[in-house]
Design a protein around this nucleic acid. Structure first.
Length: 162
DNA sequence: GCCAACGTTGGC
DNA sequence: GCCAACGTTGGC
């Protein structure tokens, strides 16, 4: 029997406006730091990400908005140094290298889905009831996804097995 | 572009 | 600690 080291991975959903940074950009870059999250709840999720965790790359404010592909966490949370840069739009005077307030992971490109899975389609799916993404007014740009939902979406909408 | 929902700020 | 004012997110 094969012994496999099973450290349980977590699943996430990361929003980005494709006009700012899209799945195609990540595909080209292969790897990117996920800077600019300035919300405490989202930051706390970032801090709990583990190397090897998987996530959906979600296009927000898009046509259509929806899940565009899959990423992997390839570096765990470290200080978001854009907050230290006065010229950055993510600058925050309350964050300093000594006492950083904001963190970011590095993410790696895993897969781009053939088609974006649009939000309205996901919303209609009874198997996905309760997803954070659907909560009214939910603006969390980083959110956890259950293993069940993650795998279901991969399999059912993207013919992808994880 | 509209606007509902939410988070943050700051006066008191 | 309350809450009004304001800014932002993000679907539509």
């Amino acid at each position: 029997m094969q012994m496999q080291k099973m450290s349980k991975i977590n699943y996430w959903l990361l929003k980005s406006e494709p006009e700012v940074y899209s799945i195609d950009d990540l595909k080209k870059d292969k790897k990117a730091c996920w800077e600019g999250v300035r919300n405490y709840q989202a930051r706390n999720f970032i801090k709990s990400m583990k190397k090897g965790d998987l996530g959906f790359f979600y296009h927000s404010n898009a046509n259509p908005s929806g899940i565009a592909g899959i990423i992997k966490i390839c570096k765990e949370a470290y200080p978001d140094y854009f907050a230290f840069d006065k010229k950055s739009k993510y600058y925050d005077e309350k964050s300093s290298p000594d006492n950083p307030r904001w963190f970011m992971p590095d993410v790696c490109f895993v897969k781009k889905f053939k088609n974006i899975i649009p939000l309205n389609l996901l919303k209609e799916d009874k198997n996905l009831k309760g997803m954070e993404l659907f909560k009214k007014g939910s603006r969390l740009s980083i959110q956890p996804v259950s293993e069940k939902h993650f795998k279901y979406i991969c399999k059912h909408y993207a013919q992808t097995q994880f």
